[in-house]
Every structure is written in C-alpha cells, then in structure tokens.
C-alpha cells in the first residue's frame, strides 16, 4: 500500500514539476501556448484566417521573412543572397498594421546548408535587412528565429553564425533580440544551438524524393528512433505540427520531378496504390507519371504529439502553417486537440 502511495506521489510530483517547469519556461520566454507559422511570400490574411487565429487563441505568428541561399545573380558580388522575400500587401489591400499590433510576430529566416557555410559574408547584411523590413512593416519584434537544416559538417558554422548574428541584431535594433531555432529530429542527437529555445519540427520526417516513402511529411515510425534524445535535450522546446498537404510528382522512372501544392482537378488520375496515383502532367518539359498525395491525419499528428510530450511534457504548439485551404481539411475540434 505504502509503495503504491509512494509511486502515486512520485508521479504527481513529477507531473507538478513538469507543469511548473513548463510554466517557468513559457513565462520566462514569453512563448504563447498556441502559435502558427506563415510560410508564403505574400502576406495576406483573409477573414477566415483572421477568424481562425481568434478562434484558437493564437497569439503568435512565426512569419517567414526570406530565405538565404547562394547568390546566383552575377550582377552582384555577394556570395549569398536573400530570396523569396516576404511582401506584405499593405498598400494595395488591407492594412495589417493594426493587426500587427495585436499579435506577436517573430521573423523567421530559412538558411540553406550551402549558405550557412558562407555565413560571415552576410551576418551584418541579414541583420540590417531584418531591421529594414521590420521598420517597413511597422513591426516591433523581440525575437528572430532561424531555420537551418544544419548537420555535423555545418553545425559549427551555424552556431557561430548565431553568436555573430545576435550581436549584429543588437546593433541594428538597439536592444537584445531573443533567438530561437528550428530543431529537426536528427539534430536532437547533437549539441543544441545557443538560442533561447527551439521549435521541434514534427514534419518533413521522410525523404520526399524517394518514391518508396509512404508519407514524407510525418510518419511516426520515422521519429521513433529520436525519442530517446528528448528527455535529456538541453534546450527548451516548442512543438511544430504539420497541417499541410502536398503532391509529390515522379516521372515514369519513378524519379522525383517536383513538389506540387495544386490539385489535379483538370487531369484524369488513376489510383495505383495507397496514396499514389497515375497521371499525365507535363511541367517545364518534365513529364509526371506518378503522384503521391501526402497529408497527415489528425490521428497521426496527435500520436506524434503524444510521443514527444510523453518524453518532455506538455509543450507550446506551433502549427505549420497558416493557410485556410489547408487548415480546412481539419475540423475545429481536431485543431483544438493539436493545441491542447
């Protein structure tokens, strides 16, 4: 009996500690419980999307500002360049300045592996550009997030970049800017980056270019091996869950052609097996023969969430990403369950 009571007491204590730690982490870093990514090049929210934010009490948007890649514009000598810069439709449509005052915006910059090797060439420019964009969008920010699929070979570059960038941001913004970073599952095995917290990407877990992959967005089998690192991971985490879908196209030799977010209403498609279809589409001279439709069911999402939270307790949740068309594939209750 005593033993039982002891076990229950330990469990309750552990739960309380988890809650307390979680709250401390959340309070200290001021991370809202519910957040969402916005990952398109034109910022425009329709009424449904604004309603979605209200309805689900979403207090923060991680807003992708631009990507950084190797510069291929011969007119400029820069080694790396910002690409796909966000454009906010302030001038021709809605004015979002009021909206930005009500919601917390965290700029996100995606950096390719090739570019991070050349980080020293753009650290200062990147900070200045972020400052200029925030100024232009009339945004007051306290945090910047960097998204990089760094590996063992680029880890040092990325970590050094974070150190330098922190200083550069301070120079332009005139204050300390908090840093966060996306964390991919394979990165859990490595030392965490020196940022205030990480966002664990519970998606892009498979190889989408591989024809035999069942679902590259999220397959719980893919993430299982990394669960063991979570308990001892020395960085507070939020959890990012996928609410998007896409089509992965392959040619007749089952070689990857492209990712496509558009459906095939105009084409005749024939189911081959599972989520793979046969279709005849030509795009820029490349013919697509097979299409794999990838979407993650709410059950799978919740399963993955539980797996992670079983290891490290309840985490702030970020959905990827804000797109009413994609989100409409989930019910309100399902969305709520992702956040709870």
């Amino acid at each position: 009996m005593k033993k039982k009571i002891l076990i229950i007491a330990i469990v309750i204590a552990a739960a309380l500690v988890t809650i307390v730690l979680y709250n401390v982490f959340v309070d200290k870093l001021n991370i809202p419980k519910n957040s969402i990514y916005y990952w398109q090049t034109d910022f425009y929210l329709d009424d449904d999307e604004i309603g979605f934010l209200d309805q689900h009490d979403i207090k923060r948007i991680y807003l992708r500002f631009f990507d950084v890649d190797i510069n291929d514009d011969n007119n400029f000598s820069d080694k790396c360049a910002p690409v796909a810069t966000l454009d906010i439709d302030m001038y021709n449509g809605k004015d979002f300045s009021d909206f930005f005052e009500k919601i917390d915006i965290v700029p996100v910059v995606f950096i390719t592996q090739e570019a991070i090797r050349e980080y020293s060439s753009f650290t200062d420019d990147l900070a200045h550009r972020l400052y200029a964009m925030c100024h232009d969008f009339k945004l007051t920010i306290n945090e910047v997030q960097f998204d990089c699929d760094w590996t063992g070979s680029t880890r040092d570059d990325f970590f050094q970049f974070l150190k330098d960038e922190r200083l550069a941001l301070k120079k332009y913004f005139g204050k300390d800017i908090m840093l966060s970073s996306t964390i991919r599952f394979h990165q859990l095995a490595q030392t965490p980056p020196e940022v205030e917290y990480g966002v664990l990407m519970c998606y892009n877990t498979g190889h989408f270019k591989d024809f035999d992959t069942k679902n590259s967005i999220l397959d719980v089998e893919d993430i299982k091996p990394y669960m063991k690192y979570l308990k001892s991971y020395k960085l507070p985490l939020s959890l990012a869950l996928p609410t998007y879908s896409w089509f992965v196209e392959f040619d007749e030799n089952k070689k990857f052609v492209r990712l496509n977010r558009y459906c095939y209403d105009d084409y005749q498609i024939k189911n081959v097996e599972g989520n793979v279809y046969e279709v005849d589409v030509e795009y820029q001279g490349q013919e697509t023969k097979y299409v794999r439709y990838e979407q993650v069911s709410s059950e799978t999402i919740l399963h993955a969430k539980k797996m992670v939270e079983d290891q490290c307790g309840s985490l702030p949740t970020v959905l990827y990403h804000l797109d009413s068309k994609q989100l409409s594939k989930y019910s309100e209750d399902e969305i709520d369950s992702f956040f709870n």
């Binding site: 000598s77 910002p82 550009r129 964009m133 100024h135």
Partner: peptide
C-alpha cells in the same frame, strides 16, 4: 552594390 538591400519605407 549589394543584393541584400531592402528598400526602406519612403521608397516603398
């Protein structure tokens, strides 16, 4: 001179 230039408010 730099591809990193971001036009500022007045220009926009």
């Amino acid at each position: 001179r730099s591809v990193w230039y971001y036009p500022e408010e007045g220009y926009l």
